[in-house]
Amino acid sequence: MSDQGQPAQEGLSKKERREIKRLEKQKFQASNERRTNFKKGLKWLVVILVVAGIGYLGFRSGWFSGAPDYGEPVIFAEQFEIQGQAHINIGSEHPPYNSNPPSSGWHYEDPAPWGFYDKELPDEQLVHNLEHGGIWIAYRPDLDKNLVEQIKKTAEYFKRRIIMEPRAANDSDIALVAWGWVDKFSASEFTEKRLVDFINRFIDQGPEKIPF
């Protein structure tokens, strides 16, 4: 080895020395190119993660729901004490709920598929949907059909985590329910803003976080 740490080149022809220098230059350039590509790839990965994170938060918060912007939200809901998250067998008896419709407490093991129903589902099943951050829209079976369609059309802006059903036990025309919260009102008090504000405020606020 020479004093500079380079391999001794005594006895090599000029052509051989030029070839060695060329190969060393190629090796140096390839190393620089790998470092540059790695840095570029890392930057793009950060950008993708940031965009994906913003998209996920927007999806969860309702930014991309398609619902109109009604301005400053107004919440009429009443908060109720949480009655636990106990699972019970189908048909089992349990203590009374503290709200109508119930907003927490005893529930069946399997939640209902999200969607819009024209038949009544068990309260104990839908409480499980609330636990997963869903919104339960319950209306009296004799509610005006045009109003039912208007409520459904408004709720469809959100495309997820919505359960809507007729419910004979309602003590109001319409009830909006989330985990620990209930907003009850008459047909004449319904506005799209009231429904949208409630969903935006309480969707995904259940104690169990699930992806969809």
Rank of each mutant, 00 (worst) to 15 (best):
H132D: 05
E24C: 04
Q4N: 13
D118W: 01
D173W: 03
M1E: 12
Q205G: 12
G66H: 15
Y139V: 02
A169I: 11
D110V: 05
G53R: 10
K145L: 04
G115N: 04
S103Q: 06
L176M: 07
Q85A: 07
S104G: 07
D183G: 02
K21T: 10
F158G: 11
F76Y: 04
G206Y: 06
P111A: 01
G105W: 02
Q79A: 12
A112S: 08
F212H: 15
N170M: 10
P101G: 08
L126R: 09
D123C: 05
F158D: 03
T191N: 04
S13I: 15
H87Y: 09
R167K: 12
A8W: 14
E109K: 08
A52R: 03
E156F: 13
W136T: 01
G133E: 03
G53H: 09
H94T: 08
Y56W: 12
F38V: 00
A178N: 06
S13H: 15
L12V: 11
G55E: 08
V47Q: 10
Q4A: 13
A155L: 02
P73S: 04
K152T: 03
K15N: 15
S103E: 02
V51E: 10
F59Y: 15
W179M: 08
F76H: 12
S104P: 11
A178I: 06
V177M: 10
D197T: 06
E165K: 06
V177Y: 07
L126M: 08
R35S: 00
I199Q: 01
S186V: 00
V148T: 00
A138W: 05
G71E: 12
N200L: 09
H128Q: 07
V196N: 04
D118E: 07
Y70T: 11
N100I: 10
P166V: 03
H94P: 10
S188H: 08
E208K: 13
L57P: 11
R18F: 14
P141A: 07
R167M: 12
E131R: 11
V50I: 12
Q125F: 00
E192I: 07
G91W: 05
I88E: 02
G41I: 06
L130N: 04
A175S: 14
R194E: 00
G55D: 06
K39N: 05
T36G: 02
W179P: 08
Q83E: 13
G58T: 10
E19R: 14
R18C: 15
P141L: 01
Q83H: 11
L23I: 07
N98A: 08
V50H: 05
I82P: 07
A169W: 04
I90G: 06
P95Q: 14
F80G: 04
G105E: 02
R161M: 08
G66E: 15
R34N: 01
R18W: 14
T191K: 09
L147F: 08
H87T: 05
L23V: 09
W136K: 03
R201A: 05
D171H: 13
K43F: 06
W106L: 07
S186L: 01
K152N: 05
I54G: 13
H107K: 07
F202N: 02
F80P: 00
E109C: 00
P68D: 14
R160G: 09
K39R: 03
K119M: 03
P211N: 12
I174H: 03
G71S: 13
N129Y: 06
A86C: 11
G55S: 09
F28Y: 05
G11P: 14
E19S: 15
S104N: 07
W179T: 08
Q83L: 14
Q4C: 10
